[in-house]
């Protein structure tokens, strides 16, 4: 930062060589064509009755009003919010606990860290298939053998199907969050703890009063990324339940995919995508604001 300030007066007024524009503008144009234009077109479609082909006309806010009256779409929002909330809280709580454990005075630390990070490497579709088998075949037969009623049926065929998806998501989501928390914990200067030890605080107090404020930025990163990611949940649902039973595990993304290509719903699902965008944007901005404020307070 200092350097830019120093440099500024010296270079003022100097023209930036054309070559520098050439290093940004072409790819910027491509990005505009393939990312921004589809986005704008999507917004445009959401105000029409276009079915993906043929003629169309403007229908104003009809698609948006329709969305709120369609129980499948409103349920998709309800499910996605519920899922994102539980996944975010559980993944972050468990990941923080694992990170604290890994940061303790343990042996084989690097090896264990590598193991805990492993699920990050695996595609959620395949992991979803594996968990589908575990829930659908392995656990029920185990449950029947042990006469455990609650385990003898496939959770993915019950009203708790979303819990099955949640468990798989937690299994995979822990990896990344743990890594970030661990990076945060390792950045804390041990001398702070030594000073605290003299004051005679207990471990819980130590964590809440000392450690947590210090790793708050890492908490922010994890929270923002988790919420954003889980609002988009798609792969594991396609692998495990296809949105069922009923439409109980149909997330917003699954709804857009499965219904969007149906002629009658193309415009409606375009509106759905726009609402999804607004939701993600709002949540991300609120989170960043609130958490940054709290960080400032804590720091």
């Amino acid at each position: 930062m200092q350097e830019t300030i120093k440099r500024k007066p010296k270079r003022k007024g100097k023209k930036i060589p054309f070559a520098y524009y050439m290093m940004v503008v072409p790819i910027g144009i491509l990005f505009f064509i393939f990312h921004t234009i589809p986005f704008l077109r999507g917004v445009f479609y959401s105000f029409t009755d276009w079915s993906g082909y043929g003629t169309w006309k403007f229908v104003g806010l009809k698609n948006y009003l329709y969305m709120f009256g369609n129980s499948n779409i409103t349920h998709a929002y309800w499910f996605t919010f519920k899922f994102a909330l539980f996944a975010t809280i559980l993944v972050n709580a468990i990941a923080l606990a694992i990170a604290v454990g890994l940061n303790g005075k343990i042996k084989y630390q690097n090896f264990l860290k590598a193991i805990y990070f492993l699920p990050y490497m695996l595609g959620s579709l395949i992991v979803g298939f594996v968990f589908k088998f575990i829930f659908g075949n392995m656990l029920p037969s185990l449950g029947r053998a042990l006469h455990w009623g609650f385990m003898s049926s496939n959770i993915l065929g019950t009203t708790h199907a979303w819990v099955g998806i949640l468990i798989m998501t937690i299994w995979q989501g822990l990896a990344f969050n743990t890594l970030i928390y661990l990076a945060g914990l390792q950045s804390v200067d041990p001398e702070i703890y030594e000073a605290a030890a003299l004051d005679g605080v207990n471990p819980w107090q130590k964590f809440m009063r000392l450690t947590f404020p210090l790793i708050a930025p890492f908490f922010t990163i994890n929270l923002v990324l988790s919420v954003k990611g889980y609002l988009m949940v798609f792969d594991q649902i396609m692998a495990m339940t296809n949105g069922g039973p009923g439409n109980s595990t149909t997330s917003i993304s699954v709804e857009i995919y499965t219904q969007g290509f149906q002629g009658s719903q193309f415009a409606v699902q375009s509106a759905n995508a726009v609402v999804l965008f607004i939701v993600v944007l709002t949540i991300s901005l609120i989170q960043l604001r609130v958490l940054n404020k709290r960080e400032e307070r804590l720091g």
Binding site: G136, P140, S152, S153, N154, I155, G157, P245
Partner: peptide, 8 residues
Amino acid sequence: QKDYMGTT
């Protein structure tokens, strides 16, 4: 069968 909603 008992688990008919969970059988593929």
